[in-house]
Design a protein around this nucleic acid. Structure first.
Length: 333
DNA sequence: ATTAGGG
DNA sequence: CCCTAAT
């Protein structure tokens, strides 16, 4: 399972503001079926997950031919999220804009825009064939790549690259999935989904993962960061319905949803979650219990000696409603 | 079947 | 978000 440098030695320390997300095992690297054991740990408090604009950065093979595969699924390597600030300061030059779509589920895991080339490619000395699944022809997914200069930045970060062997995903091409604000959620969900698709047993420190995720600042210490969509599919079907790790729904609450919930509660009062669900969230993925839980969290977040407000800033009016509702409930106790 | 609370 | 005791 564990291979070489991945034994918790922090092979690839992330930079401040960097989030490395491990995917599944590298099917080309021995343990084809066993998920890679990866650790995610909080690396820095540089970023605020909830507030940051997600930028998914992929690093992979050198030539643009591989881009298709990278996205198309043949050899998705790793995904890294950074703050826009970081992106800017680091002066990343290899960028590719694309939108996310999911080949395996309707609200997606892997996205791409560049058509996956069905050819076979030599990767890390091994031969693999790209999946036949070509990407849907999304014309609007402009593949904008700026070349030149990126290598430098890489070296800088690697500090010369001595010590650990250069992992595949460090191989330099750096692609940035520029997520627009609207797609930000998709990116975030994408990343989180990947984590959830990791079977529990595949993680050595699930609790740490969850904890880190909660705080939203992750870094990955692992060498195995390959992902093949088909494997992902297998994994998901294997686990589905078997309490095998991932959660049913990872849609992060949007501002709109929160506002809607608060407004509804403000009118109908707190409680009667089932009724609330049917009357206000009948088409939503949120269950009555979800609504209940969300309210509890909102209340906790915006009430009294609450700790730092992690939530995205809700507008004043909304916050006031939350606080009023919260205090109103106190009186009833 | 729902809800309240803890995890 | 999940789990479960209590309703």
């Amino acid at each position: 399972m564990e291979t070489g440098a991945s034994s918790g030695t922090g092979s690839f320390p992330a930079e401040d503001g960097e989030i490395w997300v491990p995917v599944l095992s590298d099917p080309l690297d021995g343990g084809s079926n066993s998920p890679t054991q990866a650790e995610i740990e909080v690396y820095s408090a540089y970023l605020d997950y909830d507030a940051m604009d997600f930028q998914a950065v992929l690093e992979g093979p050198q030539d643009e031919h591989d881009i298709g595969k990278l996205f198309g699924g043949a050899m998705f390597t790793s995904c890294c999220a950074r703050s826009p600030t970081y992106i800017k300061e680091a002066n990343l030059t290899h960028e590719i804009e694309c939108e996310l779509y999911s080949p395996t589920s309707d609200h997606g895991m892997i996205q791409t825009l560049a058509p996956a080339s069905p050819e076979t490619k030599e990767i890390r000395g091994r031969r693999i064939s790209a999946p036949a699944t070509a990407l849907p022809e999304k014309e609007e997914a402009p593949v904008t790549m700026a070349l030149g200069g990126g290598g430098e930045e890489d070296k800088k970060r690697k500090g010369g690259g001595k010590g650990h062997p250069l992992p595949c995903h460090r191989r330099s091409m750096r692609l940035a999935l520029a997520a627009t604000p609207l797609e930000m959620g998709a990116c975030a969900t994408f990343i989180v989904d990947l984590l959830d698709y990791m079977p529990k047993s595949g993680w050595r420190h699930r609790s740490r993962v969850r904890s880190a995720r909660k705080r939203g600042i992750w870094s990955l210490n692992t060498e195995q960061t390959f992902l093949l969509p088909n494997h992902l599919g297998d994994m998901s079907s294997t686990c589905k319905g078997k309490k095998c790790g991932h959660r049913k729904n990872n849609d992060h609450w949007t501002y709109e949803e929160m506002k809607k919930l608060v407004d509804a509660l403000y009118i109908s009062g707190v409680g009667n979650w089932t009724k609330l669900k049917h009357e206000n969230f009948s088409t939503s993925v949120r269950t009555a219990m979800n609504l209940k839980d969300k309210w509890r969290n909102l209340k906790k977040a915006y009430t009294g000696n609450a700790k730092k407000k992690i939530l995205p800033t809700l507008d004043k009016a909304c916050v006031e409603k939350i606080q009023k509702l919260a205090s109103k409930m106190k009186l009833h106790l």
